[in-house]
């Protein structure tokens, strides 16, 4: 099997407390100092490392190799670094150290309905949101009927501005668009909590179909064990920004995760 995603020594540092209390002039001095490799005139005496006690490492030294077709559940408690990892892989922010390589197109679903505009109709928003997710206009047009059918929005509502939609309709439409993305790799963060029970079942079914039938690589974060076991075949556990349970079958990772929680609490 070939590797779809390779993560090497990935680390992310966040500063805590008051960010940006700096003075523009000082920041500029520091910036140019860094740029030209001279000593920062604003550096505090005795402070060698930029990464100090004021912040924390949301991720530190993650090494991971995900094979094509693997559906990986990323488990961990709140603040373990799951979302940070997905945000870096989705290119929302950059790593502080390390790097990652990807083979294929990534579609990331950190939220459904991103970029929906209240004033635009459902149909117009399908094109808008599709484009934001990286689809070509032609591609959206080709799948339009399928998307509308999946969202279960009737033909009166589809040409109505989404500001008149119920919240259920809104997320259903958002999910329907995302579910029709063509990509080799799918990153999803708790997006299956959409709509009512019936639609949720359908959404899970769709995700299953997408990942299993098309051999897609999936990275999935969810706190609902039922869904995780249904969708994923492998799992890892993150704790304090480090991988504590290496890649293994999802049931095994799940059991270890539950044990870990037990010991922590």
């Amino acid at each position: 099997m070939a590797t779809a995603v390779k993560i090497e020594n990935l680390s992310k540092y966040y500063r805590l407390g008051v960010i940006n209390n700096g003075v523009l002039w000082q920041d500029m001095q520091s910036y140019f100092a860094r740029l030209f490799n001279v000593e920062d005139p604003n550096k505090e005496i005795g402070r060698e490392e930029v990464y100090d006690k004021e912040g924390f490492w949301a991720l530190s030294g993650i090494d991971l190799e995900i094979e094509q077709g693997d559906r990986v559940a990323i488990m961990g408690r709140n603040g373990a670094g799951k979302s940070t990892l997905l945000r870096i892989l989705s290119r929302i922010t950059v790593p502080t150290k390390g790097c990652f390589h990807v083979k294929g197109r990534i579609a990331s679903l950190l939220e459904v309905g991103t970029g929906f505009h209240r004033e635009l109709t459902g149909r117009e928003n399908i094109f808008m949101n599709g484009a934001i997710l990286g689809m070509k206009r032609r591609e959206v047009a080709r799948k339009l009927d399928e998307i509308i059918a999946f969202s279960e929005i009737d033909h009166h509502h589809i040409d109505t501005p989404v500001k008149r939609y119920s919240s259920g309709m809104y997320v259903r439409l958002g999910f329907a668009i995302a579910a029709h993305l063509e990509s080799e790799i799918l990153i999803a963060d708790e997006v299956l909590a959409v709509g009512d029970i019936a639609f949720r079942q359908k959404a899970i079914g769709k995700m299953n179909e997408l990942s299993k039938e098309y051999g897609r690589t999936v990275l999935f974060v969810s706190h609902m064990p039922g869904i995780v076991y249904q969708l994923c075949n492998k799992g890892i556990v993150l704790e304090h920004g480090k991988v504590t349970v290496e890649m293994c079958p999802v049931e095994e990772a799940g059991t270890k995760y539950l044990e870990l929680i037990g010991t922590v609490e």
Binding site: T3, C99, V102, R105
Partner: peptide
């Protein structure tokens, strides 16, 4: 894989 086989590389 050879480095050039990746479609995307993101680094710090």
């Amino acid at each position: 894989m050879e480095p050039e086989q990746w479609d995307l590389t993101v680094s710090s």
